[in-house]
């Protein structure tokens, strides 16, 4: 089970979560929320209002499109489907590595999950992220080499040990991808 806890689901992530849940089959706001809650019980819950406002913004931007309206009133009459540009937006986001220093653990995990959830390979993202982390580690290592004081060295080391921990997780997850995939089949 997913035992990960994460602080914030940002605005960008809400958009990508909805796109990846819509990828493959049209859905209603209510069903999207239910699926999200089921898949990510340990992530911060999405509010209905957040889902509906994001959907209408995605509609306006052409990333999703309205495919049906059932009777009754309220926002949940609307059924949305992802568009071609929605798919390409999602794919771009899924494969782009996160900025190293701001990569909150939840975001790394979220990208891997959404890639698998939408039936895509998470490996290109993990590889790109690994390369970006390593590039940053090289920068900090050379900064450490040129350090003028022991203080500066241990400050660099603090960063290096943390980046190394991220990298270990990235490698470890890459090794486990095939097993993880099975769990994300829907």
């Amino acid at each position: 089970m997913l035992v990960y806890r994460c602080g914030i689901v940002g605005l960008m992530s809400t958009q990508q979560i909805l796109l990846s849940l819509l990828d493959g089959h049209p859905s209603y706001g209510y069903d999207l929320k239910r699926e999200y809650d089921e898949r990510f019980p340990n992530l911060k819950p999405l509010r209905f209002s957040q889902i509906y406002s994001t959907l209408s913004r995605l509609d306006r931007d052409g990333l999703v499109t309205l495919v049906g309206e059932s009777g009754g009133n309220g926002p949940d009459r609307k059924q949305y489907a992802i568009t071609e540009s929605g798919v390409s937006d999602l794919e771009t986001w899924l494969s782009a590595p996160l900025p190293v220093d701001e990569a909150p653990k939840g975001e790394l995990f979220l990208k891997v999950s959404l890639a698998l959830l939408s039936g895509r390979d998470a490996q290109p993202f993990l590889e790109a992220q690994r390369a970006r982390h390593m590039a940053r580690m090289r920068e900090v290592t050379s900064q450490k080499r040129n350090a003028d004081s022991e203080t500066e060295i241990v400050v660099c080391d603090f960063t290096l040990f943390h980046l190394e921990a991220d990298l270990s997780w990235i490698d470890h997850t890459t090794e486990r991808l095939s097993r993880l995939k099975v769990e994300f089949k829907r």
Binding site: M137, R138, L160, E164
Partner: peptide
Amino acid sequence: HAARAAAYATRS
């Protein structure tokens, strides 16, 4: 195996 060691290198 250690990323901190690999970071001393110029290439991987």
